[in-house]
Design a protein around this nucleic acid. Structure first.
Lengths: 331, 331
DNA sequence: AATCTCTGAGAGAGCGCTCTCTCATCCACC
DNA sequence: GGTGGATGAGAGAGCGCTCTCTCAGAGATT
């Protein structure tokens, strides 16, 4: 026994398939009694429209791809930014009855797969999450003439709408906080320099240091806890007298705190630490982390709105959301 | 200009649509030269099969739903278990060319949506993640005659294949470790009692305490950091003399550590702490957390295999994976 | 040479739906 | 009473693909 078709519904209600279709799609040009008969038939048969058949004719699928370019190793699993963004986007899309197809792309091989999938008409649009600088996906997809939006400014100058937070400004206010609280030797643990967020936060750091006449001390991590711990040890070796460090994300800051503890440095007494992101864990470090909050969920929601606008012809100007310094105990 | 169809490919290659289809689907009954001509046409036109049309006739979609029942508030975003499982399942499915449709269900309203979506034939099968005890989804879906597997033993006695870790055994070995290291007053912060993992880990705790003639001291959390912190304060009030606590997941253990610190208790000197899950963050707490490791990624992979077996008629016996005690400094 | 495989390719139905076009019916108006 | 315009419902094409059925032709067998 297979699932009932519209044909079956029509037969049971004693109408034509066309009329049944009208009822299913909520058209108003159906007399109330006939309408009721059809609805009853639908209910009795447990009819659910076949999506493949529908999208074959409508050329729509009512689902969108969420393509996550993994920044390597295990960041996806560890960094709550991803799940927060995914969750928010998913909720937002659910509200307009669209489905999320999640695509994790790590290798160049899966890159081709994504492109094939998307050009296969499976989805009406694409949301791109966290790509690296050299990611060929944005341009590849926009070439496919598929509606694409991006979470985070694309590194390559490609004309796709995007949502981002003010990475430079945020970093600046974080570092400025360190300057204003009297820190002299301010280091930074930068993010991966093939990611825009990594670059921009480093730029913000440099801007403030230049303006306040301090020397920059830089180590680079890859946004993982582990890399933060490694980078912190490195910094302590490079400049044992440093008294502050601006870390480009909270996850690395957690690692940095551990290295500082192991090196016998007190935070914030000996070394002040400022993170970036304000993930939940920032409240639970020892000491709790001073960091820059930016609204991840709102950013994801804004991205969804951008995509919907792309479908319906609304405004698609880039959205830049502000960051906010959250002062806790680490700085 | 719309996307090229198989018809166009056939025309360009000078063959029939049927032959072109044979080539696309890798059938061997096509002469090499004709085959080459078709492949060339495909390449030149940039042809990609229309998935809707294909699945309309094949009755397959090559995508599966990953339904995540959110255990309330923000656990999904914070607990890396989810992203790890999602990632692993996604990678595993990608390997067999299937897509993941992510469905987050929180409200009963979205529950109906999920059911409708699934019975709409959008997906070939369903993977269920982390449902509560009263979750009606497992039975509802298995009633729809859709292949369903579950990550975590379903609470209701429904006949669906599942993968789980040995929650009872894991909890037992964790608590036993506390007993063996000489702890006398061992409390627990249990997980939500409407979740199997919450129940089973509490059972394990109780088993060992009963056997070692100790009194159980229980507070209940909801697997969030915050709830762990609250529960720990509660426990300290209930029994200021406790010298150990078994926490049902690492996230709550992080919160508990903070509360212990704020209460001036040293870990592990005054109070030993054992967590559960061995998330990455467990290495970075102060002190690093002794906890029970279970292979989340493998579990997700096993779940995928179960689903594939359901499609192809392989074995679908429940899979229970072992846990392993990882001793760090907190106990 | 006649028949019989076997291989390779085409014809065409049909998956379940939407949507345009057509048409019957009804009421209003002159 | 006849015409015009709504209104509501049906007929049927067609979305792009797969797959069975059919058949032409090449080679093998008697």
């Amino acid at each position: 026994m297979r699932r009932p078709t519209l044909e079956a519904v029509a037969a049971r209600a004693g109408v034509s398939r066309a009329t049944a279709s009208r009822v299913v799609n909520g058209q108003t040009t159906v007399a109330p009694d006939i309408r009721d008969a059809v609805l009853r038939a639908i209910d009795e048969l447990g009819y659910v429209p076949n999506s493949a058949a529908r999208s074959l004719v409508t050329q729509r699928t009512d689902s969108v791809a969420l393509v996550v370019s993994e920044p390597g190793n295990r960041v996806f699993s560890e960094d709550p930014m991803f799940s927060t963004a995914i969750r928010s986007a998913s909720v937002e899309l659910e509200a307009v009855n669209k489905q999320v197809v999640l695509m994790l792309v790590s290798s160049p091989k899966s890159h081709a797969r994504v492109e094939r999938y998307i050009s296969g008409g499976h989805v009406d649009g694409v949301m791109l999450l966290s790509m690296h600088g050299a990611d060929p996906l944005p341009s590849a997809l926009s070439r496919l003439r598929v509606p694409v939006v991006s979470y985070g400014r694309p590194a390559v100058p490609v004309e796709i709408p995007f949502v981002d937070n003010d990475n430079v400004g945020g970093a600046e206010s974080g570092v400025r906080h360190l300057v204003e609280t009297g820190r002299r030797r301010i280091a930074t643990i930068a993010g991966p320099q093939d990611m825009i967020a990594g670059q921009d936060r480093l730029t913000g750091y440099r801007n403030v240091l230049r303006d306040s006449d301090r020397r920059s001390i830089v180590a680079v991590g890859d946004f993982t806890r582990e890399s933060g711990a490694v980078a912190m040890r490195q910094l302590l070796r490079d400049d044992p007298a440093l008294d502050a460090v601006f870390v480009a994300n909270d996850l690395m800051a957690v690692g940095a705190l551990q290295s500082l503890r192991q090196a016998g440095r007190r935070v914030p007494d000996d070394v002040a630490v400022v993170g970036f992101d304000d993930i939940e864990a920032a409240k639970y470090t020892e000491p709790p982390l001073t960091t820059l909050r930016h609204p991840i969920a709102e950013q994801a929601a804004a991205m969804v709105r951008l995509l919907l606008n792309l479908f319906e012809g609304g405004p698609t100007d880039p959205v830049i959301l502000p960051t906010e310094l959250v002062v806790r105990e680490s700085a």
